[in-house]
Nucleic acid binder design. Structure first.
Length: 760
DNA sequence: TAGAACTTAAACATGT
DNA sequence: TACATGTTTAAGTTCT
């Protein structure tokens, strides 16, 4: 049996130990884990984004942050060389950078875009004769401004961690949503990139006429700018693809790069002339032969690009390199993977598949040495290289901004669709994603292009940068094949079971800490419809060695309430635990003691002498009473708390909560009117989804001795001894209310004393 | 930081 | 005596 660990997810703190122990428990069994791909590694690209001018000086190879995914096993020599060159270039250009240092990124980008247009103009002027103008007709229709489709937001689920999404959505919903996202994204991506390319093409065409007066001298720089603009688009595309990958929409394994990836590039394939322009323009300093050399290879057919995109790296380097329509040295994920496989240690971030991956270059280099030579000659310190670095920075920055925006939009959408309007809290206080961490995640996205990361499995270690728990994660093997599009690993077992994430479905943020003892309290205490969750994920808990995200008390209660007569012997409770949860089948040592302990400790469990011995029942009133933590004061406070608690409940059992399409807590009169707890409905909210029989029938049908002792009055029979005991206990409880003097079971004592006022 | 809730472990008592 | 059951205490963790 495969073991599903509950460790994935953003576990704020302290899960590490748990994870470790869990990992230990899992032992030799196959482990499926869902890990949020919270890769967070600061790459050169990141740095560059952070400080533009600085980066130019120090990270000339920052383009890797976006483009080069090929292994950088050796980043040393080659990168070092490039770095040196670029570094000096940056230094030299520092003056230039400083000169326009006042320019904001947006302005800079605008300026660059204008530059690109001018370049295109000039370039077209120059090449007017040789360049056929295909797509004249099509160009007109795509004159709309370049917009990032809304769906882009869907591509950055990093904004919402998988956990958050899980908390918000039930597994089926989550899956459905993800599927929709996938379809929508792919579709929109296709349209988007098509538009982008068409627009660029249009720009070129339109400039053909307008730009005839432009002086040729500025051509070089403007070509560069245009190049950069194209690069931007390509990188955006890459980013989107990466996001897709992160979501699991795109397989992590190269050989799994199937449908989505294949369709995407196909659609994204640009008109053949565009790459030609890209190459044909040939950077001023770039040997014409280089550009010409490659034109013929990749730009000939889109079909080729499409196939090479998804196909394993066996494709000839040149071909594989033009997987992206733009003719850009694409580094799409499949290729990245392949790169990681193929590229020997002695690779360079700017060198892969026998090509120079400098933006727009793609010069074929037989070996690293030749590449280095090429790098030093063609991409040496000059204005062009510097500008390209600068643009690369801007690209990264823009991508981040864009991702942030779209991710926020996604959040808002999710909030709107799945959360109560009255509950903005869940998003206002995300589990782990304040705006800052949003950027971190965004960084992570970009970082994922870090060529040093051989594969996506490397997300694990990087997780540590977000969460201290990750070190444990790294011990666990993550199988990409096991990942579902929703980014979760679903329980390997029980095909019959609902699509449940590996993490106990009800495991929200709270259960992430489930390693920890008290984590579940919010879930179980506050109306998590444990019964419905158990009903829905019965198979999961039954088969997966996952600790249920409920407290012992809630589980015991559930066990008891599930029986017709609402009473169980201790042994039956044991049996229920073992029957329902694989976890308790394995870890027998402690939990039985804990069960007994809880039965004794909590006042809500009442021992009833029965014919066949002692049985345990639930005093629902007491159980409800103990739920709300100390709450005093104003109704608003209470309301706020309820709101917050409902989020906790959602965390704990988002699935069940959504299934019920309402927040039990909010709907529970008992909760809203704690004072009326005594008038609790026969079935608490927890029982909403439970297959509990009608009370009367149960009561009547149950053995005579003690009619359903579910409620206090019923329990009285057996409670007598208990009460008597309590009476005997440090007396004050019955005398003048003096909680402080109550005996050890404060639980019972205290609760007795603040029945109504507690929440009023 | 304190307190509450929870888990875990253990000692002890009682009954079978 | 061994085991199951039940009570109680204490320590530790996590969250609020």
């Amino acid at each position: 049996m495969s073991v599903c660990a509950t460790v994935y997810g953003i576990c704020p703190v302290g899960l590490q130990a748990r994870v470790s122990s869990l990992a230990a428990r899992i032992g030799g069994t196959s482990v499926l884990m869902t890990l949020p791909i919270y890769a967070r590694v600061r790459t050169q690209g990141d740095m560059m984004v952070e400080s533009a001018s600085e980066t130019i000086r120090s990270a000339p190879s920052g383009q890797n942050g976006v483009g080069s995914l090929s292994g950088q096993a050796d980043g040393g020599s080659g990168a070092g060389a490039a770095g040196t060159a670029g570094g000096s270039a940056g230094r030299d250009s520092a003056a230039g950078a400083d000169s326009n240092g006042e320019m904001s990124p947006a302005e800079l980008l605008h300026f660059q875009q204008q530059q690109a247009l001018q370049v295109a103009r000039q370039f077209l002027l120059q090449q007017a004769s040789g360049l056929s103008s295909p797509g004249n007709s099509e160009s007109k229709q795509s004159a709309s401004a370049v917009q990032v489709p809304v769906s882009v937001a869907m591509m950055s689920p990093q904004m919402l961690t998988p956990q958050q999404m899980q908390q918000i959505l039930s597994p089926p919903q989550l899956q459905a949503l993800l599927q929709q996202q996938q379809a929508l994204m792919l579709q929109q991506l296709q349209e988007y990139y098509k538009k982008q390319q068409e627009q660029l093409h249009l720009q070129l065409l339109t400039q053909q006429q307008a730009g005839k007066q432009q002086p040729k001298e500025a051509l070089g720089n403007k070509q560069l700018a245009f190049q950069q603009q194209l690069l931007q688009m390509q990188q955006l595309q890459q980013q989107h693809l990466l996001n897709l990958q992160r979501q699991g929409l795109v397989s992590l394994q190269p050989n799994q790069a199937s449908g989505p990836l294949q369709t995407l590039p196909q659609a994204a394939v640009c008109p053949t002339d565009l790459p030609q322009l890209w190459k044909g323009e040939g950077a001023p300093g770039q040997p014409a032969e280089d550009s010409i050399k490659q034109e013929g290879l990749d730009l000939t057919g889109t079909a080729t690009t499409a196939t090479s995109f998804a196909s394993p790296p066996k494709v000839s380097p040149p071909l594989s390199h033009h997987t992206l329509p733009n003719g850009q040295p694409t580094v799409l994920t499949p290729r990245r993977d392949s790169s990681s496989h193929e590229e020997a240690p002695g690779s360079h971030p700017l060198y892969g598949h026998g090509e120079c991956k400098w933006p727009g270059c793609e010069t074929l280099c037989e070996d690293l040495g030749q590449f280095i030579k090429h790098l030093n000659t063609e991409h040496a310190l000059d204005d062009r290289s510097t500008a390209q670095c600068r643009v690369q920075m801007q690209v990264v920055q823009q991508l981040e901004i864009q991702l942030a925006k779209e991710s926020e939009r996604l959040q808002a959408m999710m909030a709107h669709l799945h959360m109560r309007p009255s509950e903005p809290k869940p998003f206002s206080q995300p589990v782990s994603d304040p705006p800052a961490s949003l950027l971190q995640l965004l960084h992570g996205s970009l970082d994922s292009r870090d060529p040093t990361l051989g594969g996506w499995s490397l997300h694990l270690p990087r997780c540590s940068q977000l969460n201290p728990c990750s070190s444990s994660f790294s011990k666990v093997t993550i199988s990409a094949a096991d990942s579902f599009p929703d980014g979760l690993v679903h329980p390997p077992t029980s095909a019959a079971a609902p699509v449940t994430p590996l993490r106990p479905p009800g495991l929200g943020s709270a259960s992430l800490h489930s390693g920890g003892p008290a984590r579940r309290r919010s879930s179980d205490k506050f109306c998590s419809p444990i019964s419905s969750e158990l009903a829905q994920n019965h198979e999961f808990y039954k088969n997966a060695d996952v600790r249920p995200p409920f407290t012992y008390a809630s589980l015991i209660r559930q066990a008891i309430l599930e029986t017709p007569d609402r009473q169980l012997t201790l042994n039956e409770i044991y049996n229920w635990f073992t029957r329902m949860f694989a976890y308790f089948r394995r870890n027998t040592a402690t939990w039985k003691n804990a069960v007994r302990h809880n039965l004794s400790l909590h006042k809500c469990f009442v021992r009833v002498e029965n014919v066949k011995g002692a049985v345990w029942t639930v005093d629902e009133r007491e159980y409800q009473k103990r739920r709300p933590p100390k709450m005093t004061g104003s109704p608003t406070l209470v309301k706020n708390m309820i709101s917050g608690l409902s989020y906790g409940a959602l965390n704990a059992s988002y699935q069940a909560a959504l299934a019920e399409s309402s927040f039990p807590l909010l709907n529970s009169p008992g909760m809203l009117n704690p004072g009326s707890a005594s008038s609790l409905l026969p079935l608490s909210h927890d029982d909403v989804g439970a297959p509990v029989e009608p009370l009367p029938s149960n009561g009547s049908s149950s053995p005579p001795r003690l009619s359903p002792p579910q409620y206090s009055h019923q329990v009285q029979v057996k409670e007598e001894p208990a009460e008597a005991e309590e009476d005997r206990r440090p007396g004050p409880s019955l005398g003048p209310p003096n909680p402080s003097t109550t005996g050890p079971p404060e639980d019972r004592e205290l609760e007795e004393e603040l029945p109504g006022e507690e929440l009023s």
